[in-house]
Computed example of a mutant assay.
Amino acid sequence: MPRPDPLSYLPLYLVTDTALCAPRTVPDVVAAAVAGGVTCVQVRDKHAGGSALLDLLAAVAAAVGGRVPVLIDDRVDVYLAAREQGVRVDGVHVGQSDLPADVARRIIGPDAVVGLSAATAEEFARAHALPPGTVDYLGVGAVHATATKPDHPAPLGVDGFAALVRDVRLPCVAIGGISRADVGPLRRAGAAGVAVVSAICASADPRSAAQELLGARNS
């Protein structure tokens, strides 16, 4: 199957956090969030080994049941292992210090999604210099400081985000400490969507949290 149009899955993009989901399981939180309107799920757990991450990815994919794309953070090897086992996983998201996006694309093929983090004009320029079709979307941030990714770049704010994405050709999803109040301003600033962690994973009601975030986008 050809890879999906990014504009269809970027509006409300959930990045998982195992610790914030506890004592609930990540798949349970993901299932509730997708029921509430989440349009894409990225499985991220920097502390999990390869085997545990593969198991987590498979469990999340089963919980999602093909309703929205499921991506894996960083780990092209885990993506390949999951596909080998018949797990429905749609692609990978790589950062600036991970496997280069063009290498990831060659490994995983033309039908998978490849997302790339970018936070500076130089990183945007390098992304645009890649061959067409290498990257599907850019994850841009941090918009605000966030404890879920302590090594994030200096926060951009909504105005900084708007300045970075003004002339970008790739769809951009904003990430980093995003709350419901940010959703409308970021959409008006040019975001194709917002990526959230705490706003859903730390919520007592992930389904309602997702509904409120999506409602803020559509209001």
Rank of each mutant, 00 (worst) to 15 (best):
A35E: 14
Q85W: 04
V197G: 07
L186R: 08
L12H: 04
D74L: 10
A209N: 12
R166K: 10
R24K: 09
S203M: 10
R180I: 15
R83C: 13
A112T: 02
A33N: 12
P6D: 04
A174E: 03
S117P: 03
T39V: 02
S179G: 15
T134P: 01
A58M: 09
A59Y: 07
D151W: 11
P206L: 13
D17T: 11
D159K: 15
G141Q: 05
P6G: 08
A129E: 12
A58S: 12
A192Q: 02
I72F: 09
A174R: 01
A162G: 08
G49N: 09
A119C: 07
A191R: 02
R217T: 11
L7F: 12
Y137K: 07
V173S: 05
R24E: 06
Q85I: 05
V92G: 00
A33H: 05
A199N: 11
Q96Y: 04
R169D: 10
A192W: 02
E122W: 01
G91T: 10
V196K: 02
I108D: 01
A61T: 13
V89E: 05
V183M: 08
V68R: 06
V194I: 15
L12A: 06
V165H: 00
R207H: 06
A199Q: 05
P150T: 02
L130R: 06
